[in-house]
Design a binder for these strands. Structure first.
Lengths: 142, 142
DNA sequence: CAACAGTTTAGAATAATTATAATATATAAT
DNA sequence: ATTATATATTATAATTATTCTAAACTGTTG
């Protein structure tokens, strides 16, 4: 299980004990080519699919929120019913496909740097993020 | 109560009966200079402050959602815990003050048109919106 | 003003998230 | 290795936000 060493390291660095469950969650989240966009529900489903033993929902919530707080996950809220987490924690833009309800990361060069002219005294800009909502071109396709 | 006529008109146009409660809600939402950003909670609180009689939460939810569906309100989701409605229903950008948890509309000219270079085949762009998160410049101010 | 259809309401039902407290486990010291 | 300790996991309970329900009420139309 050499491939898990980095997760164990990651967890340790953030002050979390690398328990079996947490390592498993990290594996599912971070052991992939592309960045992963998921809701807690998605993740819980994936866990129960990939694992024989189940992990309690409370642990999933706790671990995801701990990772988010430590900066290893980022939350992206689409509407009051859908909130995603993103393994790409850098400031970046998204496409949201309203048909499939899928989030897609934008590369740096796919959206030109946004020029913010407004300035609020005493406040600094923490992030500037764009959400592009797309949907099927053909309305009656469904 | 001549000033309410426009709300009554507005409600009628959207197929909603202009009941006392709905007119009151419209008054609070639309009878103001600036656009109004609010959570359901904010609105319910404002209603009970400004009114002697109370309006049932169910009615507040129903009316707000009906107005949203009809296009008189727009939802802006900041994170999974905070979802705002906006009386400005046009596609536009926002500042979010992370200290005060307040949403601020951007004028057309305060953020330069965002140039989206990416194209997803078969999909058309419905909206492009920017969220600028700001916070106090002075970290230890609180 | 009577009748009907649509509304409001309080409270119940549901869903998502968080808290709790008993049991289990990782870690560090022995 | 074993043990002691602090921390984690878990099932379940509690909480919160939202939606549903069905009875009472009200706006509208004729």
């Amino acid at each position: 299980m050499l491939k898990n060493m980095n997760f164990i390291e990651k967890l340790r660095e953030t002050g979390l004990r690398p328990t079996k469950q947490r390592v498993k969650i990290c594996e599912i989240l971070f052991n992939r080519e592309k960045t992963f966009h998921f809701t807690i529900n998605d993740l819980a489903k994936k866990i129960s699919e990939e694992l024989n033993e189940k992990i309690s929902l409370a642990t999933v919530y706790n671990t995801v929120h701990a990772l988010q707080k430590k900066g290893y996950l980022k939350e992206i809220s689409i509407n009051s019913h859908k909130s995603y987490f993103d393994t790409n924690t850098s400031v970046h833009h998204h496409f949201y496909d309203e048909d499939t309800q899928q989030l897609i990361d934008c590369d740096e060069n796919e959206i030109e740097t946004v020029n913010v002219k407004k300035n609020i005294t005493g406040k600094k800009i923490n992030s500037v993020e764009v959400l592009v909502r797309v949907a099927s071109d053909n309305q009656n396709q469904n």
